[in-house]
Design a binder for these strands. Sequence first.
DNA 1: TTTTTTGATTACCTAAAGGTAACTGATTAC
DNA 2: GTAATCAGTTACCTTTAGGTAATCAAAAAA
Lengths: 115, 115
Amino acid sequence: MKKKEHKECLSALVPVRDTLDIIGGKWKILILISIWEGNKHFREIERSIPKLSTKVLSKELKEMEENKLIVRTIINGFPVRTEYTPTEYSKTLQKVIKELQGWGINHRKEIFGKG
Amino acid sequence: MKKKEHKECLSALVPVRDTLDIIGGKWKILILISIWEGNKHFREIERSIPKLSTKVLSKELKEMEENKLIVRTIINGFPVRTEYTPTEYSKTLQKVIKELQGWGINHRKEIFGKG
DNA sequence: TTTTTTGATTACCTAAAGGTAACTGATTAC
DNA sequence: GTAATCAGTTACCTTTAGGTAATCAAAAAA
């Protein structure tokens, strides 16, 4: 009898993991959407998302900048302000998020809708 | 000056959260793929995924059954065996996973490939 | 009768994610 | 001078996810 080989295909999952690391977590998509909607300043973004703390926002914004989803610009003015703007590249995530949303909407029907 | 309204659109994100809960985490996609590949029995699935513990596998399989991604069948035989088989419905996740993978592959290029 | 294999469950522990709150430094209004 | 707003940082605590290992019950093999 042929010994069963378990193909693992772990390497193909590395990019899946990468993506989940970037849009997973409790706040990441929320913050991204807030910025897409036009919120530009730290306090503005913070206030737009109930219960989000400055610490978490600070950490997430750094990661998002590293991932080229947003650009951070310091504006030297009377009160020094910081501006966060979404990159064109960040918009490539919209299709992914839509896909997650579509599946989730259908899943609710699958689980609760029909018996 | 018109007061800035921050549209929150939190409700639209509930299904996104749902989907991430189902395919997020360290093992869920790995287990799903193992079953898609034909691994049917508890030990078989366990052995196909290095470092996965029985405790976590047990928990994840329950959740996957609740989410109608797999079917659990007990086969009364000489050693009582349990069989896990993927549902047709589970295959609707393949498109989502492909999307996550595609974005992740491109993202590596974006971050490391070009300066 | 002891060991092995099957499919798990339980208790305990660690590591990571996230939450709370105080504090910095600069500037502007009172 | 005092308070408030801007953009954060830091230290500490809690919660959750995941890991380790022992155990259970049934049955077959030695």
